[in-house]
Amino acid sequence: MNSELTVLDIILNSGALEIMVMLILLGMSIASWTMIIKRSQVLSEASRKAIQFEDRFWSGIDLSQLYKEVQARKDDLTGSEQIFYSGFKEFARLHRSNDKVPEAVMEGTSRAMRVSLSKEVDELETNLPFLATVGSISPYIGLFGTVLGIMTAFIALGAMKQPTLATVAPGIAGALIATAMGLFAAIPAVMFYNRLTNKVSKLEHTYATFMEEFSSILHRQAFAANQEK
């Protein structure tokens, strides 16, 4: 009879604490996969938008015209577009009031873009710490469930007059399932945490490079305008 037990039968015949541990691990696994899929889509979209905007930026379009286009949808800006919008807006504001002090103009412009860069990176990193947490604690939660299951199996074994392997095997198997579920939750979480973190780092580098290049253009404009006066 025991040889016909399925994994589901073993789980259902486990103790209440073991089942609770398995449910926790199952919930963590579902939550991590949901975040993995969502973050992967967000980062892919962010990468696509960054390439698309930079192609537009370097197409030779007048920056004032590009700013007007971006301003028209300022509530939906992300990534390089948001950095450009914040920088150009601050540059135009400071240039009107400090046109004879280009250093002050560039300092304020750079500060505005750095703030935008920081906010964009924080947004990209949303939920990544949760994946790291799942990856680090799931094996221990699974091990806790395994210890509980083995303890229960050996207590039951001690109460039997003629114990056999067949009588305790389902209990031990159920305990080991908890460890397997812990690894099932942890391994994808760690793998995708590393992968997504690498994508965030690449996007941050892309944004920072764009910010420096844009700052150089604005720097030349600020000092050129000051020399003309």
Rank of each mutant, 00 (worst) to 15 (best):
Y193G: 05
A153F: 05
Y140E: 05
S29F: 01
F57T: 03
S59F: 04
G27Q: 06
N98Q: 14
P139D: 06
N198Y: 09
S14A: 15
E213V: 07
K202R: 13
E81W: 05
Q65E: 15
V7P: 01
M1A: 11
L5V: 08
T6F: 02
S29C: 09
H219V: 00
S14R: 01
L66P: 00
L26A: 15
G145S: 11
P129A: 14
V7M: 14
R114Q: 14
L5T: 05
I177V: 15
T167N: 11
K119E: 15
D75Q: 14
I11R: 04
E69H: 08
S138Y: 04
G27E: 02
V134D: 06
M106V: 01
A166L: 11
N2V: 05
N127A: 10
L66E: 10
N194P: 00
A222S: 13
A31F: 11
A173M: 03
M20K: 07
T146E: 05
G182A: 10
S32T: 04
Q227W: 09
I187E: 10
L117W: 02
N226A: 12
A104F: 11
A159P: 04
Y67I: 07
M181I: 08
A156W: 01
L157F: 08
S216G: 15
I30Y: 12
P129H: 11
S3G: 10
S215K: 03
A180Q: 09
A16S: 14
A208K: 00
S97W: 07
L196A: 07
F223M: 11
